[in-house]
């Protein structure tokens, strides 16, 4: 089961609204390489990992990704909270406003809604862990794109931090992949 801790894994305190950035950041919530996709991918794949190392790692990284969903969601919420309708229109977020007002909705940066088609499960631990490694690298790349697109340190700080988590997760998945690759052949 899961329980909630009423704190962010890393603090988010965005002082200036920024509708344009909210529109872009949302891809790390509901885009193909985003945190929601990561959480569901790992939490779904963990059941059929071949031993307890894999079950533990996918459970723990999948759970951390839920904390990252919360961080990204918090950023979007804070960026949009005080936006006027005029500002929302000017940023091209009026279609979002029509459907959701200032509420959050998991889409990519083009407004395409989240879908579980963004991830796979094959039941083959090497294939699944390869996907997980690729997912971490793609998320890292998207974080770098987003870091390039902002000069607000309240936004950039958490993005740098989240990018670093992708690097650690990639390394852990790769370690496990390499161990399984050797051991499962025997």
């Amino acid at each position: 089961m899961f329980s909630y801790q009423k704190r962010l894994q890393y603090p988010i305190n965005i002082k200036s609204k920024n509708i344009e950035m909210a529109k872009l950041l949302v891809t790390q919530y509901g885009g193909s390489n985003g945190e929601l996709s990561a959480a569901l991918r790992y939490l779904n794949q963990r059941y059929t990992m071949p031993d307890d190392r894999g079950k533990a790692l996918l459970t723990d990284i999948g759970t951390e990704e839920l904390a990252h969903v919360e961080m990204i969601s918090t950023m979007i919420y804070q960026l949009l909270k005080d936006a006027t309708v005029e500002e929302i229109k000017a940023a091209g977020l009026d279609p979002h406003y029509a459907e959701h007002k200032r509420a959050l909705y998991p889409t990519d940066a083009n407004g395409v809604p989240f879908t579980v088609a963004y991830f796979a499960t094959t039941g083959d631990p090497l294939a699944d862990l390869s996907e997980d490694m690729a997912a971490e690298e793609k998320a890292r790349a998207v974080y770098e794109n987003l870091i390039d697109l902002t000069d607000d340190e309240d936004i950039r700080g958490p993005l740098l931090w989240l990018r670093q988590r992708e690097i650690v997760h990639f390394a852990r998945f790769k370690e496990l992949y390499d161990m399984y690759k050797k051991e499962l052949k025997k």
């Binding site: 190392r53 533990a56 790692l57 723990d60 990284i61 951390e64 650690v168 997760h169 852990r172 370690e175 496990l176 161990m179």
Partner: peptide, 9 residues
């Protein structure tokens, strides 16, 4: 937490 992930492996 970061040690937890390492120890899983």
């Amino acid at each position: 937490h970061d040690l937890n992930l390492y120890l899983d492996n």
